[in-house]
Computed example of a mutant assay.
Amino acid sequence: MSKRVAVLTSGGDAPGMNACIRAIVIACKKRNYDLIGYLHGYNGLIKQESISLSLDSTHNLIQQGGTVLHSARCKAFTEEAGLKQAAANLSEAGVDALLVIGGDGSFRGATHLADHYLGQIIGIPGTIDNDIAGTDATIGYYTAIDTAMNSIDKVRDTADAFERIFLVEVMGRHAGFLALNAALSSAADYVILPEFFESPESEIKKILTQIHAQRRVRGSVSFIVVVAENVWPQGLQALTKALNDSGITDVRPVTLGHVQRGGTPVSNDRLLATSLGEYAVSLVGTDTSNVMVGEVNREPTTVPLTTTSDSKPLNSAQVALMKSIMNERYG
């Protein structure tokens, strides 16, 4: 029996969301499912604001950043009345399965929606932060690493020219995945991660040890510190001041910001988005619901939506690499 499927993108945008939408469109067409897309995340669901999605809408979509369905935060979706309205709209539209592309907050919303909606709900992880448990990587994560790496490479050029110390803040919300891999791939000299942050005093001591040791070995050269957002109290300006107060005067802070969310998705994000989109549609019409589809060891998997906010550890091999060639290099 033919099904009606709906898809929306919620929360922060991530490169590869469009690639996932494309895969969903193709997979639904293959199975003769009707597909609609809700605009502006859960806001569109509450307002019954949707568009029909067909194969025509997939042309040149895989390489586009952002999301053609647009995204937004939705305060009304945190309230009982908003959830009930969304469930009623899905029923009125005859939607059998709702696919939600987003992150932790989006999945919490989907979990609450399940209390009022009897159809299938399937989450697809789309966030540059990679902070979703149950999947090795999230859509957008690989592209964000490349974007941060390329930016840090450019910062290094001017840092070398003036033999300066640069503090580069990258996104990641409250997780260090993006900061760690951006630092490793750009050959940064030090990285500050929430998973290992003890106190400003101990971190400053470690940074100073690295700077002075490196200068004894190589002379007065550039030094790049990658900082995960939300980890340093009062932000980069406070870290800059702390270094200044410790006798390190030529320090420049750089916040990369939302540039990390944009751009053409790299191949790994396109492949992940395509795989997860297809896999999510393959579950439509089964007993599987209130789950997130993910990928572990290159194989598709499902986990309950309620577990996606569980703590997700950094890759132990990459942590060991960080300690070996960065944070404890001159220890």
Rank of each mutant, 00 (worst) to 15 (best):
S91Y: 03
T9L: 04
K75Q: 03
G105E: 15
A86N: 05
A19K: 07
A23L: 06
D34K: 13
C74G: 00
I62K: 13
L69V: 04
S71W: 00
H59C: 07
A81T: 12
G65I: 13
L55M: 14
G82I: 06
E49I: 02
I36A: 08
Q64E: 14
A72V: 06
C20T: 12
L90A: 10
G65V: 08
G11W: 10
G41N: 00
I36T: 10
A19V: 13
L99D: 08
A23D: 07
A14N: 08
A114Y: 09
L61C: 11
L90W: 09
E80K: 10
R22H: 11
C20I: 09
L113N: 02
S50D: 02
D115I: 05
C20F: 13
L55D: 12
L55Q: 12
N32S: 14
S106T: 09
N32R: 07
S91H: 08
A19L: 05
Q64W: 01
D96E: 08
A23R: 04
D96V: 10
L39D: 09
E79M: 13
Q48D: 02
G37E: 15
S50K: 11
I51Y: 03
S10M: 00
G16N: 14
N18I: 12
T58L: 09
N43D: 01
Q85N: 02
N43L: 12
L69K: 07
Q85D: 04
I26P: 06
V95F: 04
V68C: 09
N43S: 11
N43E: 14
R73W: 02
F107V: 05
R73T: 08
I51T: 07
I24R: 10
A19G: 14
V100R: 01
L98Q: 05
Y117K: 11
I62T: 14
L113G: 11
K84C: 00
N89H: 13
A23M: 03
Q48Y: 04
G65S: 09
S71Y: 05
I101F: 08
L55G: 00
